[in-house]
Design a protein around this nucleic acid. Structure first.
Lengths: 239, 239
DNA sequence: ACGCTATTCCCCATAAATAGTGAGGGCTAT
DNA sequence: ATAGCCCTCACTATTTATGGGGAATAGCGT
């Protein structure tokens, strides 16, 4: 069972990794063990600083960053509204920006076939794991079908390790909001006005204001929008 | 390889499911094939109406819903800030509400050991997949270690199927925002005032307002807070 | 070439948010 | 039982945001 062996070997190695450089080495090793041209873990929205572990050239990585291509890249734009691993053939490559990006990406060594796994974590974390190769559609389909589940597990475990390494523990010390504060922010996030919310909660608008204010202070938020966003990304309210 | 067989059998059956009732039957079948007391898929924040496929008693499900226990349940509160599958032993069961809930849950047939897999999708989707059994810590640890990856894949595929069945296609017709609109909402989400943002973007405050307004209209949002939340949960802005 | 969208600017009136300072009763945990 | 948070309501004043208009230039896609 070579599938299981490859996966097990990788996940075991991942457990032993301690630094971002270790992750980088593992991604390189992964490319080789699965026989693809590129493997990329890209932390799109994880913690304050950007992070990626990849086998693309450092020049392309730097250029991608400098050009703010994360806002253009059809892979990112597509994956962010996707739940399941996504084949690059599903993507929309039309539009001037996308076509220019594609040209530059191919020139930089990015291949024609790709499979990208969206990864979502708490606090609005979003990352992508991509494998990328040059081959025809039939071969890619076969490869993709055989290893998709491996890739789903691998992407999950890489993200887990990366966040363990990158995100300090102190990020998690979140004093919870009171039920009324939670309710207030939840209705605000749904677009209701204070008048509507105070009716729903059957309290005066003054009281509602007290909740919103205290929630804002507890969350260390600068204003109501910030408070709602903070509460949402900390999982204190749902949408 | 019984593990692979079980998993394959389940995922194949899942592909053939067409209705919420089919999913329910599959969850019951899953409980039996893995030999646990309960299996639960719980769509906490997926689409407008609540949904669950589970082997707990209908009475407990109804009571849980009526009591709004989703706001109390330590499993939900814990999983929502967790990325990796979470053993119930990691949870904080202190606090009056949690202890009362625990008592009622056990009386309703919920077992002492549990493993819950958090599932996150686009547009702020959040769901939970839980397996639950009565046994000692050592047995559970063994079981958990053996089948955790199966459960991760199963939870992903159940959620995928549920959303395919429950969420209509029309939810996905999202016109993208322009770069300036994106910038405006991003800075709003970070807590800046319109004065600060117009300085940063080097445009007049009037112009900024045009962007915020047009973003609001494009997103079908009721006000600015709603627009920012919608943009965020659709992945149009990062945080 | 035409239409659509992006970008930029402006006025006015009303609604909402922010920052103070207050008070009283209830529940929980140590 | 005592401290701390939770829930509820009230007043005032200032700053900011919202919603309704309108208008011009420039670029991109069909």
């Amino acid at each position: 069972m070579s599938i299981v062996t490859k996966l097990e070997t990788f996940l075991d190695a991942l457990e032993g990794s301690q630094t971002p450089d270790d992750i980088q080495s593992l991604v390189v090793a992964l490319r080789e063990s699965y026989g693809v041209s590129n493997a990329v873990y890209h932390a799109v929205n994880v913690g304050p600083m950007p992070y990626a572990a990849l086998t693309y050239s450092p020049e392309w990585m730097q250029y991608y960053h400098d050009q703010k291509y994360v806002q253009v890249d059809p892979v990112v734009k597509g994956a962010i509204r996707q739940f399941h691993p996504m084949d690059w053939k599903q993507l929309d490559w039309s539009g001037k920006g996308s076509r220019e990006f594609l040209g530059e990406a191919i020139a930089a060594g990015v291949c024609n076939q790709g499979l990208s796994v969206p990864i979502r974590g708490p606090n609005g974390q979003f990352a992508l794991f991509t494998i990328n190769d040059n081959c025809n559609d039939a071969s890619w389909e076969k490869f993709s079908k055989e290893y998709k589940r491996d890739m789903m597990l691998i992407s999950h475990y890489i993200h887990r390790r990366v966040t363990e390494i990158l995100i300090p523990e102190s990020e998690n010390d979140t004093r919870a909001l009171s039920p009324r504060e939670t309710d207030s922010l939840k209705y605000l996030s749904l677009g209701f006005s204070r008048g509507q919310i105070s009716e729903k909660l059957k309290i005066s608008e003054h009281t509602l204001r007290v909740y919103i204010d205290s929630a804002r202070h507890k969350l260390g938020a600068l204003n109501t929008i910030h408070a709602v966003m903070t509460a949402y990304s900390r999982g204190l309210i749902s949408f």
